[in-house]
Design a binder for these strands. Sequence first.
DNA 1: CGCATCCCCTGCCTGC
DNA 2: TGCAGGCAGGGGATGC
Length: 293
Amino acid sequence: MPELPEVETVRRGLAPAMENARLERVVARRPDLRFPLPERFAERLGGRTVTGLGRRAKYLLADLDDGMVLVMHLGMSGSFRVSQPGKAALPGDFHHPRSKIAAHDHVEFVLSGGATVTYNDPRRFGFMLLVPRAGIATHPMFAGLGAEPVGNAFDAAYLAARLAGRTMPLKAALLDQRIVAGLGNIYVCEALHRARLSPLRAAGTLATPAGRPNMRAVRLVEAIRAVIGEAIEAGGSSLRDHVRADGSLGYFQHAFRVYDREGAPCPTPGCRGTVTRIVQSGRSTFLCPRCQR
DNA sequence: CGCATCCCCTGCCTGC
DNA sequence: TGCAGGCAGGGGATGC
C-alpha cells in the first residue's frame, strides 16, 4: 500500500494520539513481522514516552524519551488504526477501551491518553526496529537514502547528478530509494506521465555528459513534486482496503492518470494515445506510449 | 555496476 | 461452486 504520501498520511493521523503519550503497555502478538521484532520489544517500549513522530522516505520514526527511535515500515499491506477510549458499548460497560482484535493485528500500543494504536499487516512485509537516535544517520537502512522529493535538496541539478551515466530504465532509477526516497510504483508511473517521459528511457538521458540537468530533468522534478504534493493533500491513495489511522480513505486514486487504467484514453490534452500496461522488473508499469517519450 | 529473477506472505479477482 | 493462477502500494538477496 504505502508510498510516501500514504506514510505521511499515516504519520499525520497517528501524531495527535502518539506524540507526548506514554506507552502504557505494548503487546506483540507474534515474534516477527518481516524480521524478528527486537529482543524484549514490548518490555523495552513499555513506560517510554513518544516525544515526536516523524517520517523519512517510507519509514515512520517515533522518537522515544530514552534516546531510541522506534522505526516502523508498513511494507505492502501494513496499516495502523487508532481506537479512542471511553466509548462504552453499553451503559455500565467499562470493558471496552480497546477495539476488537482483528485478523493480522500484530502489535498494539496502549497509550497514556487511553487510545490504542494497532498495527495490522496481512502480508507481514512490514517491520519494526529500535535504533539509537544518534545512530540513525549512519544506520544501513538510512545512510544511503536519497533526497525527499518534496524537500529543498531535491531539484533538477540533484536528480541529473544522480542519473548521469546510468543506462538503467528511468522507472527503475526512480524506484531506487537511494536516488529519490519515498517514490513507489504508483507515483513513479504518475510522475513520468505528467512529465511526458517514457519509463523505458535510459535514466542518464536526463543529464548532459557533464551531469548537468536538461529540460527533461527539470520537467520530471516538477512532476514528482506536484504529484507527491497533491497526493499528500488528498490523504494518499486508497486501493483495495487501504488505511488512514482514523479509518477514512484517501482519495488520490481518483486522480490517477495512468496507474491501473490500462485501455483508457490518455488524459494528456490533445493526445490520442491509450494507456498501456507493460512489465518492468516484474512489476506493472502504466504509460501512454504516444505522449511519453 | 546493471539488471532479471526469485523470495518473503496473505488475500482477492479472474478464468476455466 | 471450486480451484489454480496471476496480481498487489516494498525491498532484499542472489546470480549472471
